[in-house]
Design a protein around this nucleic acid. Structure first.
Lengths: 316, 316
DNA sequence: ATGAAAGCGCTAACAG
DNA sequence: CTGTTAGCGCTTTCAT
């Protein structure tokens, strides 16, 4: 009797234990997929990330998993290889096997996201899409703090290593960094788009030098670390000759030499918030809460005073 | 008409395009879960890993995803937080929603694994279970190479930082390292079990020094890197005073200072092989192929000749 | 080549 | 409290 599993309190304890014993004996397990077909609830949540190898994601994934487990849900993680086409395919594939999808740093167009949201409840992370619930980390504020930090150290020419095409975060950073640089009367040059990996950073080392920038804000820590590597192999020292700021505060940024100055993103809180939003509003698709989480500048050893003792150089 | 989707060649092209047009108009998408209920094929594969934050896994995950995509399958990744109880729960949860599960570095007992394999096809990675298909990387050979490398450099006392309880890999490493040390007439002391994280390594730094070992083989790169950090903060230099070898060759091991000498694991090949085995043998549960992949010692900068003369001192 | 009907494993609603 | 029935969305088989 199926009630033994679906509504244990409505069944005679004696009957229940008899059924249970029999089920045990037969090795019976309820088929969750069949159950979902009729209840409309799979108790699964899909989580689509751009690149599982990017250390930025694991803390977010873990927090989401933990939040989900507390509510008796499971998270299925899938990776898109930064490919918008794969993103779309994965949403379709997950659609009827999960109760909702967490779309993390999607690269596809807003209109496509909106269209997909009619197929399955969506919560978007690291991007704002009008009409859809979203969780964003205020990376614009972080970028502003970073640029202010650099200009306070006397840097007058800053390079910005942009992220991949289609990244909402990258646009936000650019917007905020540009504004902050203008406010401080400093020059800001945007380089990119780039792959959001170490390699993307390494590849821009020469370019940064040729530019004559004395400080760099990178789209993420991986690129910042790659850039440090690249500069190192060109014989350029960080932070004595070039200051570098990353974004994300991945655990790795505490292990490199020099330790990376970076903008800390509350990834754990974002993962939890996204799960909460998805589960809270259930089927009420009109809810469009947009949560913004604060970021924070973490000053370590990869930033220092601008070189060439200029009169307006400020000591920290 | 459902045939339009399931058997397009058996349907009149004209009818087909009419159905397709209508489906498009209605926004219809076949429900994969319902389809699976009857075909018995979900075209999904579950992948259970111990810790998604461990950089060892992403290359394996990506390779598995890529191999799966080529065969029109999707990989659902889940994380157990190194908790055997969660491992079991996840297998049950995935059971009827996937066509098979890849169990990566499982911590649970062999008998439980065997029992679960009756519920859903299983391929075990990084562990050998009699009667089940498995893919292992020959970490024993790698450990032997590492110990031989160290003894050849003159080290007479080697510490082995063991992995977590329940790890098959950890037992293999221990077995092989012990044998290799004995063959070279060197002393080998096992420390652990430890958490397979940076923190697990950092925490053993003092212990290693007190032991008087001049070389350390760590269960994985994360622990090796943590140990380097720990020794560094105790004022001990690597490799001048202590040589360190990791295992895995995660990308991070090329970024630390000093660059890590380590045993390279063919994680990509392992991921692909596991998917192939699962899909190849389909329902034939009696197939018990066991694939063993070769490992390789990568010598970088964290190992050097054994120090001569006085033993180092622990600063209070 | 297409329509109709049965049924995958389960839960919901309704009787008893 | 427990047995029965219908039907979730699909594919398969059997008619037509």
């Amino acid at each position: 009797m199926s009630r033994t599993f679906s509504a244990p309190h409505l069944v005679n304890p004696e009957t229940r234990s008899r059924v249970l014993a029999c089920a045990e004996h037969l090795g019976y397990r309820p088929n969750r997929a069949a159950r979902a077909l009729i209840t409309g609830r799979t108790h699964n949540i899909g989580l689509i990330v751009a690149d599982i190898a990017n250390p930025f994601f694991p803390p977010l994934i873990k927090a989401a998993e933990s939040a989900a487990r507390h509510r008796d849900y499971h998270i299925f993680v899938t990776d898109t290889n930064e490919d918008p086409a794969v993103e779309e395919e994965l949403v379709h594939a997950l659609a009827k096997q999960v109760d909702g999808v967490l779309l993390c740093s999607p690269r596809m167009s807003n209109s496509l996201i909106e269209q997909l949201s009619r197929e399955v409840p969506l919560v978007v992370i690291n991007r704002q899409v009008t009409g859809l619930p979203s969780v964003v980390m205020d990376v614009g504020q972080g970028a502003r703090l970073a640029v202010e930090h650099l200009t306070a150290l006397g840097h007058r020419h800053i390079a910005l290593l942009g992220g991949p095409r289609g990244s909402w975060t990258s646009r936000e950073i650019r917007r905020a960094a540009t504004a902050a640089a203008r406010a401080a009367d400093a020059e800001l040059t945007v380089l990119g788009p780039n792959q959001p990996t170490e390699h993307g950073g390494t590849g821009q080392a020469e370019h940064v030098l040729r530019l004559g920038a004395t400080a760099v804000l990178a789209y993420n820590d991986l690129m910042a670390i790659g850039l440090i590597e690249g500069l190192d192999s060109l014989g350029v020292r960080v932070p004595e000759e070039v200051s570098i700021v990353g974004i994300d505060d991945i655990s790795l940024s505490r292990l490199t030499r020099p330790k990376l100055t970076t903008v800390a993103n509350p990834t754990g809180a974002a993962g939890r918030a996204a799960v909460d939003m998805l589960l809270q509003h259930g089927d009420d698709r009109r809810t469009t809460a947009q949560v913004t989480l604060q970021t924070e500048l973490v000053i370590r050893d990869s930033t220092g005073p601008a070189p060439t003792g200029k009169p307006h150089t400020v000591k920290e």
